[in-house]
Write a protein that binds this DNA or RNA. Structure first.
Length: 333
RNA sequence: CGCGGCGUGGAGCAGCCCGGUUAGCUCGCCAGGCUCAUAACCUGGAGGUCAUAGGUUCAAAUCCUAUCGCCGCAA
């Protein structure tokens, strides 16, 4: 069987490697065009070895059209005369015309338990919404975003991973399911399960603004945001100090602290009297569901603008907090 | 030449704009003390070519130039 793979990033790479090691003939790899400057100094996105490099090692031709749906892109694909298309996190929606080229159709490796979380950012969205489990679904590609019938599915629990960590766990599951599905397809026609339209939810791309922390949200929600926004766009906030320019800081790690604090505190206020141990940085957040008491988030790791990533203890030594200091979403002008 | 921040004892920072006393703070480390005890407290100590190279000056961590390195933004 002649296979063409399309994908990008760490989520797609295990599948590419599996296909290269597998029994079928990988005739070409499509990946996104090289982004300018990305390789210069570590991207904000997760980039493993790179699809291009992995494919090149095995002498598999690589194609990077700006759009597969353009006449050029379609021509590239047609020129390979594939039997099957395997897509994982490619980032482009394939046109009907492109999907019609492979004789056996196309399958997609998707990082959620479909029909939930259709779209570009299923892993981060699942964490953000407090799901307790997620998984990988293999679907037959059809018109419509992630709407095809399901051919295989496997779930795993969500613990306290960041989006990047969770994706790294899902990727190998996806590659395994993809190979199994291909093997079944070769054995004969297979039928999948239709997605229940009533259960469909969308997982749109994340934006940079979604990383801005609103300290008036409940503690659990703030912590989920911190995990979901990694490695991109990262959760961030500003430290406001009287007479000083607001300091932007990326929050890398934060946990809910199971104690309530004075309800009169403004959300985002560091609770200094609790900082007995120099490594502890507690922040007051919104009131929990009922009652007036406020929840607390403990920041463990962060990175002030222009500095490297550091522990809360290190941060507090260099930026001792005083009365009137507060974390908040307000941007410097 | 895409934009910006930063390089100060082991860690994190201040000092730099407005050059000039022993380069400071919060920690860590070593020794001793107090204590039933401690991550607490007290005393003493080691540890710094202020990234590097030039320049300006009577005098440079501080001003100017270049180089190297780290980081953020550009999703």
């Amino acid at each position: 069987m002649r296979i063409v793979m399309m994908g990008t990033g760490t989520f797609a790479e295990p599948t590419l490697e599996a296909l290269l090691a597998g029994p079928d003939f990988l005739v070409g790899v499509f990946t996104q065009p090289d982004r300018e400057g990305v390789q210069k100094r570590g991207s904000t996105r997760q980039v493993g070895r790179g699809m291009k490099e992995i494919a090149a090692e095995k002498g598999v031709p690589v194609f990077q059209p700006a759009s597969v749906n353009s006449p050029e892109g379609v021509a590239m694909l047609r020129g390979l005369s594939p039997d099957l298309l395997v897509v994982a996190a490619y980032g482009q929606i394939l046109s009907k015309e492109a999907l019609a080229i492979p004789t056996q159709g196309a399958i997609n490796v998707h990082g959620s338990l479909l029909p939930k979380y259709r779209g570009a950012a299923p892993v981060a969205r699942a964490i953000l919404n407090g799901e307790t489990e997620t998984g990988v679904t293999i679907i037959r590609m059809s018109a419509g975003l992630d709407a095809g019938e399901m051919l295989a599915k496997e779930s795993i629990p969500i613990a306290d991973e960041t989006a990047g960590e969770l994706e790294a766990k899902l990727a190998p599951i996806g590659s395994r399911l993809a190979l199994q599905t291909i093997a079944r397809m070769k054995a004969g026609p297979i039928t999948g399960e239709k997605q229940d339209l009533a259960l469909v939810t969308k997982a749109p791309k994340l934006t940079k603004e979604m990383g801005l922390i609103d300290w008036s949200k409940p503690a659990e929600q703030v912590c989920r945001q911190v995990r979901a926004m990694q490695p991109w766009p990262t959760a961030y906030t500003y430290l406001h100090r009287p007479g000083k320019v607001p300091l932007r800081a990326i929050i890398y790690s934060a946990v809910e602290y199971p104690v309530r604090c004075d309800p009169r505190l403004q959300p985002g206020t560091p609770i200094r009297e609790w900082h007995r141990d120099p490594g502890e940085l507690f922040i007051a957040v919104a009131e929990e569901l009922p009652g007036e008491e406020r929840g607390v988030v403990q920041i463990l790791e962060l990175q002030p603008a222009g500095k490297k990533r550091m522990t809360a203890e290190e941060f507090l030594r260099g930026y001792p907090l005083k009365d009137g200091d507060r974390f908040g979403p307000e941007t410097p002008i």
